[in-house]
Amino acid sequence: MKTPVTSVDVARLAQVSQSAVSRTFTPGASVAEATRAKVLAAARKLGYRPNAHARSLITGRSRIIGLVLSYFENLFISVAMEQLARRLQRDGYHILMFVADLHNADELIGEVLQYNVDGIVLADATLSSTLAGLCADSDIPVVLFNRVMSSSIDSTVSSVRSDNVEGGRLVAAHFVGQGKRRIAYIAGQEESSTNLERERGFREELARHGQRIFARAVGNYNQSEARHATHELFGLSGERPDAVFVASDHMAFSVMDVLRHELGLRVPEEVCVVGYDDVPQAQWQSYQLSTVRQSVPDMVEAAVGLLHGYLRDADQPQPAKDVVVPVELILRASSPA
């Protein structure tokens, strides 16, 4: 059996110290460019591959971030998690992905912790205060992405989300400004923090103008359920809504398809539609969806910043932080200015 090449062999060939070899293959470590070049050349010649597991035993850091998702249908989360993974990889971290039951990660957290992860990001999922405490006791930072803890008394989990309340207000103000009087809302997951905040801002702004939601249905952030919700709101006889705020873009696409192709209604002439997220498909010519833009780059940077802060100052207690990123209403053909 061929004897494995070690960092000592590389150091000897490159005529540098073993610590220089270690720094060369440690993301973020300081090493002179000339030294790095000699080490990499020697490693290529010898066929050396650094042992990440062995390095983690020495440093106490795995450089692995556990990413927990609840489902993949959400177009916004797919875009955001790709950018988050690429951003973490640039910093020398690796992603280990887990799929939780719908919106509840409790059953998976114990399994995630077995992999000696340096941190956990929960995207469109949440966990109980008990499990959050377990992560805190294990010195594992947890960041909720596009969510906030339902319990206001918990102080161990940080979160990054857009200003959902303001987003709801912007949509309501837009519809009122258009002179709409029969304004409907298609909700996402009823008890999710994103839906609760978006609907709260929407209702508050309508109330400020002496209006209230004309009709409401629930789509549960699911395209099929959004289709049924649309039929529920628009399929009955009598007055129909003249505008509808849909709590996510991927539901809004289903809503527009039903309105135009199943109910024969014209968008925006007979009913205006506004979504939430501004996923890339919102710009497609077949939809041209007006929507509330969540800034994915800003949310990703905030999440990475929180993780880095916790890992950099791991020996010092770090209070949980709630980062709220500003939003912007983007008007397109489905509900023009």
Rank of each mutant, 00 (worst) to 15 (best):
G264T: 02
L265P: 01
L265N: 02
L265M: 10
L265G: 06
L265K: 05
L265T: 02
R266T: 14
R266H: 14
V267N: 09
V267C: 11
P268E: 00
P268G: 01
P268D: 06
E269F: 12
E269W: 10
E269N: 11
E269S: 13
E270K: 10
E270Q: 15
E270T: 10
E270P: 13
E270S: 13
V271G: 01
C272R: 15
C272G: 15
C272T: 14
V273E: 03
V273C: 06
V274E: 05
G275Q: 05
G275E: 07
G275F: 06
Y276G: 11
D277M: 03
D277S: 07
D277I: 03
D277E: 04
D277Q: 01
D277K: 02
D278W: 07
D278C: 11
D278I: 08
D278V: 13
V279N: 10
V279L: 10
V279P: 09
V279I: 15
V279H: 09
V279F: 09
P280S: 07
P280M: 03
Q281E: 14
Q283G: 09
Q283I: 06
Q283V: 11
W284E: 11
W284S: 14
W284A: 13
W284F: 14
W284N: 11
Q285L: 14
Q285G: 12
Q285M: 14
S286R: 15
S286G: 14
S286A: 15
S286C: 15
Y287T: 01
Y287I: 02
Q288D: 04
L289G: 06
L289Y: 11
S290E: 06
S290K: 05
S290A: 10
T291F: 08
T291L: 05
V292L: 04
V292H: 04
V292S: 03
R293L: 07
R293S: 04
Q294I: 05
Q294N: 12
S295A: 07
S295H: 10
S295Y: 08
V296F: 03
V296M: 00
V296E: 00
V296T: 05
P297K: 02
P297R: 02
D298F: 06
D298Y: 07
M299L: 08
M299P: 04
V300M: 07
V300I: 04
V300G: 03
V300H: 01
V300D: 08
E301Q: 13
E301L: 11
E301K: 11
E301W: 08
